Simulated scan of single mutants.
Amino acid sequence: MRKLLLLLAVLVLLPGPVLVAVGAVVVTSATSRAVCGPIVAGVPDALTATTADGVSVHLDRVQLSHAATIIDVGARIDGVGRDGILVALMAALTESRLRMLANTGAYPSSARFPHDGNASDHDSLGLFQMRPAAGWGSVAELMDPQYQAKAFFGGPDGPNNRSPRGLLDVPGWRDLPKGTAAQAVEVSAFPDRYAAYEPVARAILTAITRPGADASAPTRDEPAATAPTSEQVVFPLPHGAGRRLSGFGYRFHPIHQTTRLHEGTDYAAPPGTPVLAVADGIVSFAGPYPGAGNMIVIDHHVDGQDIATAYFHLLDSSFLVADGDQVRAGQQIAGVGSTGDSTGPHLHLEVHPGGFTKPAIDPEPWLAGQAAEPLSEARPAACPVGGPS
């Protein structure tokens, strides 16, 4: 079961004159802003990953706790999403190796704040090596990991009022290579450093936000505890886009040539036709799955009941969501395809009360009972994407 965790401060003994390092604290509560991106599920004790140029990087729990703070802050800011979080992780890995760094040479007072070490790069401080003299904030503010993450992301609600500019203030940042986007915020004298850390950032995001020990398949026995309550259920294809092919029940399988239970309903549609989330929810799986081809599973809470919906045979490279993303009813999540055990382009929809590993029920009466409405077009994501241009 996915849970948002309170990451307790971790005390670590470091060599040198600065002795105390305090890990990040991620606090989520019922009054927090809605999570619109990857959800922190837990922080491992350690992680080792390799940069794009073959350098092995070992990260401890303190560093990964700071990564969790960046993820959690980014997930609560409209327009950041998974891509923006990756850019931020790449920047923090490059600038500080995800350590909260004081700078006693420039600011002796910085040693009074929780930190993981001492640095001496001009007057830079913290995870992103931000400079008070450049207008990023005061020493006290920049020694706060959450403040630094908010400043890096920027945007209309950022603490710096877009000067210096954060990621959301960079025109067209989503169209830039992620290393270039990081440099646009950091304005480093070494602009090519950031791209090397993209594989490490991706490994961190996978380790911290994916549920369970085996992220290659949906194995949980119940939906995510954070699945939002949905007040609306919609049809999984736009109005007039699908034609019913085959319903729920036992049938002769056209590929396996045996009689078996068909656990969903098939709707024929042209390749690339938008596939829509039937209700508000949390993506618990997005990837290849035996027989289903490319599959997405979404956990919901509908009419007082936990429900998982599964969408099979999706078009290659059509995924618009990833594990841990929050979606809203009617949002496009992928496109119709013919991957896996399929004889032609169609959507196979399954409904599983209690979670994906529980028995499926007939989707058609369930949709009808929820008064599912066909939409004329896909809705935007739960949180707007893309920064100002």
Rank of each mutant, 00 (worst) to 15 (best):
L8C: 00
V22F: 05
V22I: 12
G23M: 09
V25S: 07
V26M: 00
A30M: 09
V35E: 02
V35S: 05
G37H: 02
I39K: 03
A41D: 15
D45T: 15
A46Q: 14
A52G: 15
D53G: 13
D53H: 15
G54A: 13
V55K: 15
V62L: 10
L64Q: 02
L64E: 00
S65C: 07
T69D: 12
D72F: 03
R76D: 09
L86Q: 07
L89W: 03
M90G: 00
M90W: 06
A92K: 02
E95H: 08
N103L: 08
G105P: 02
G117R: 08
S120M: 07
S124P: 04
L125S: 03
G126D: 04
L127S: 06
F128M: 03
G137M: 01
D144W: 06
Y147W: 13
G154D: 01
P159F: 08
R162G: 13
R165W: 09
D169S: 12
G179M: 00
A182Y: 00
A184W: 02
V185Q: 02
P191A: 10
D192A: 15
D192I: 09
R193C: 00
Y197N: 08
Y197F: 15
V200I: 07
A201C: 09
A201L: 03
A203G: 08
L205R: 08
A207T: 14
P211T: 05
D214P: 06
S216V: 11
D221S: 12
E222Y: 14
P228Y: 02
P236S: 05
G240N: 05
G242S: 09
R243P: 04
R244P: 13
G249Q: 14
Q257V: 04
T258C: 06
L261K: 13
A268V: 08
A269E: 00
A269T: 05
P271R: 13
T273H: 08
P274M: 09
A279S: 10
D280V: 01
D280G: 06
D280Y: 04
G281V: 01
V283N: 01
P288F: 08
I296V: 14
H300P: 00
H301Y: 11
D303Q: 14
D306A: 14
A308C: 11
T309Q: 02
L314W: 04
L320N: 10
A322F: 08
A329E: 06
Q331I: 01
G335F: 02
H346T: 10
E350D: 15
E350A: 11
P353W: 09
T357W: 03
D362W: 09
A378C: 13
S389P: 12
